[in-house]
Amino acid sequence: MEPVIIGLVLGGMYALLAQSFVLTFVTTRTLNFAVGEFVAVGAFATLAVASWGWLPTVGKIAIGVLAAALLGALVYRFLVLPFTTQGEHDVRWLLSTVAVSFVLLNLMNNVEGPSPQRSETAKLDGAVDLLGVGVSKQQLLLAALALVISLGLIAVTQRTSIGLVMRAVSQDPDTTSLMGVSPRVVGMGSYAVAMGLAGLAGILYAANVGASPVMGEPLLVASIAVAIVGGLGSLWGPLVGGALYGVLSQVASYQWGAVWGETAGLLLVIAVLVWKPEGLLGRRAEVKL
């Protein structure tokens, strides 16, 4: 039972990051390979204001989230958008976000140093008992947030006018602009929200492992895997993928050791993709002639 519970909780954290992949993918057809660094940016920005006694904790977290969100919007506008202009085969954005990841990682390494720094801003002490398994409140918070935020995003896209616009942009950006909507603004908006989410995950995660430039890297592969397993086109995907990936990798590492945990998770990705290339909840792209 224990690995299952822990797995679900861990999966929640991956799901939060996976949600940021899905969000940028549905609106802009791009993924930000620098998400791992945005996790660290959020953590460091909050750390930088941690000593401001007058600012309540929520404010400090907000600053971290906003820093990541703002940087995300800028990265989209200047380093992603210009590399998406040559149609669906254009994957230059993929290379440019990888480059952004190199630059940010290197910069943070030089500025902050490679070793983790304690970050207590968003720390919840103690653990709760969940079906006989002790789970740290911190991790539970992350998982709960992932769930709440996912449901919130789903409600927004299905029920609101903004959501309608988002769905329209995801299907045909050019025609959306004929409807008086700027796809560029929608893209920047979704990058801001997505990277804000990554920053939030970073702030909460840093309370566990400390803030460091490479803190996001181990999360990156897992959360991309989760997003792909669930299906990049579906906001429900990360929840399903996160649960599956989290439980499987925990059970495997419980049984055979840590290396196998991750390996099992990645093999799951390959297995799912062989079976359903569009992910469990994804939509198959139709060939139109």
Binding site: L79, L95, S96, V98, A99, V100, S101, F102, V103, L105, N106, L107, N110
Partner: peptide
């Protein structure tokens, strides 16, 4: 430094 500069070169 090196990795960051390679990133910039890439961009």
């Amino acid at each position: 430094s090196t990795t960051g500069l390679v990133g910039v070169l890439f961009l």
